[in-house]
Amino acid sequence: MSRSFAHLIVAAAVTSLLILACFQVPGDWNWSGVWEYRQKFISGWLVTLGLSLAALVLSVAIGLIVALFLGAQNPLIEATGRIYVEIIRGTPLLVQLLLGFYVIANAVGLENRFVVGTLVLAAFSGAYMAEIFRGGLNAIPKTQRDSARAIGLTQWQSFRLVILPQAVRLVLPAIAGQLVSLIKDSSLLSVIAISEFTLNAREVNSFTYSTLESYVPLAIGYLMLTLPLSATSRWLEKSFSYER
């Protein structure tokens, strides 16, 4: 199934959900209550956008560095990377956020919850990115490295000009998927009282008792972040693609 078709279905599903909701419960429908709190949705959405963008950039960087660790010749460096990945992947993000904020950040005197939240989210996502990048780097045939050495490139040039560009093209869909997860996972930052999108929507719900009216915009707001991301990835994939 083509992904543009998939996007169409998503859009249709959301629209029909909205329409259905409007017609099914006409008496109880209460948009005006929620409308009064529109500023809360907007500010929450912006916080989520900002957090996600920062964590996104950071997690790609962490992912790349840890991927290099995982492939290191030095067994100590490799083990360090492996331990990091296993600890992060073996514990829930929720627990990492609580520990990160109430224990680690507290101990080092880091008080800004936005910074801590972004760091934990990036560290979390970075572990998954690392595995994805590692897979991509491993998939580049050894002969490419040979070829790069033969023309006299340094190890770093070989990585930067030959291996990485090929690996990135290979893992782009998986990376895009991980970024979508990151955006959705950012909703958990509400547990350390960051006024992001989900927390604000829940607050509006508790003020207005309009559950559907509070949470439908929430779903749409997240889709507004994730759909452009997968569309961009699809476009990049197409313009990068080449047969091997």
Partner: peptide
């Protein structure tokens, strides 16, 4: 010196011309 392999080992993400230019520019 120059080395040529049995399976060419050109860089698949670059055009033929960019393959030729890469060592000239970067090395």
């Amino acid at each position: 010196v120059g080395t040529v392999f049995q399976s060419y080992n050109l860089f698949p993400h670059l055009s033929a011309r960019e393959n030729l230019i890469l060592p000239l520019v970067h090395v």
